[in-house]
Nucleic acid binder design. Structure first.
Lengths: 181, 181
DNA sequence: CCCGTGTGAGACAACTTTGTCTCACACGGG
DNA sequence: CCCGTGTGAGACAAAGTTGTCTCACACGGG
């Protein structure tokens, strides 16, 4: 009967993303357990958010590893990254918007490392001539976060098919909306 | 000594965007007034959020009007839209993430109308051959929201220069990151 | 079969936030 | 000058939330 910690965190992220003021009781209900049990696993709201953040950081790092960003064309690396990070998109959407974190040095360091790795692949693409140079790596990184969150939300809202997730993000991020002949 | 209602709403949006659980007292302090006065203008937290939403809808509609989305190439229309909507980007970033709104028929209708107008310009671009057809108008609309929020945040964080706001969004949305020869 | 582990339900006090009210005061127009 | 309007500060009760505890119970392994 052990609670699936990750599954609890995921449903908490899904709820908190669209209603950040949700009660611990609401979070518990959404995860299908009682407030008492939720409290046994996470000492309080802060602890829950920190756990969400730790999970998000860990999943991002894992996705970055799995995407092998240094291999082959940067465009392919970005495509692999988006595909790998898709399962964590909902979590990311929450963490990206909930920047109350400004505390916690360890966490901040984690995000800085992730940002740096993402920016690095864009920079590599610029240096080898794949990517245009007027869009800065920092902006492309932020834009990727924004698109991941937007697409995750669009999928849950039914405005984008789940199977199109990677395609929609990568094609827009790399190719843009303009038609090429 | 009358309080500048719009300015209060803007600073409230700025605070709530990154810390949605902020207290009415914190919101008041951030806006530079006392909780008592804040309460005189907005009956409560709900009223404040609804006012934020009304302002956001109004500014979006105004930007849509000013952008003349039906005139000339769709790409130029999108560029005008982003330029017009820039001042409201912070507000939008908050409203886009805080989807606790699911109540309120009038508001919902407002967003639906805005969504439809945005999607229409993308559809027009597809129909006249400017835009590629594998990215749906609904997704391009969501992506625009996401990019607006991401860029507004990146600007306040200092990762993107304020003057580059329109350029960064439009160039990425329309042209993508890939270099063209 | 029994017992240990983990859970749900509910009670409870402590704390926080909210909404309201009162009072004093600063400002600006008449 | 005086008075009305709008504000800040603070007090206060009401409501909501949190953290803790207790008890009963379901389940599964030994």
């Amino acid at each position: 009967m052990a609670v699936d910690r990750d599954q609890v965190l995921r449903s908490a992220a899904a709820l908190l993303t669209r209603r950040a003021t949700a009660t611990m009781d609401e979070v518990a209900r959404a995860a299908g357990l009682s407030r008492a049990t939720l409290h046994r696993h996470f000492a309080g709201r802060d602890a829950l958010v920190r756990a969400l953040e730790s999970l998000g950081i860990a999943e991002c790092e894992a996705a970055l590893d799995a995407a092998r960003l240094d291999d082959g064309p940067a465009a392919d690396a970005v495509r692999r990254l988006v595909r790998e990070i898709e399962p964590a998109a909902g979590l990311l959407a929450f963490l990206y918007t909930e920047n109350q974190l400004f505390e916690g040095e360890e966490q901040n360091e984690g995000w800085a490392r992730i940002d740096a790795r993402m920016a690095a692949v864009f920079r590599r693409g610029q240096e080898n001539g794949e990517f245009r140079i007027d869009l800065t790596p920092a902006w492309l990184t932020e834009a990727l976060y924004g698109l991941l969150g937007a697409c995750a939300w669009a999928v849950t809202e039914g405005r984008v098919a789940r199977n199109d997730f990677t395609h929609m993000i990568v094609e827009l991020l790399l190719g843009g909306a303009l038609r090429r002949e």
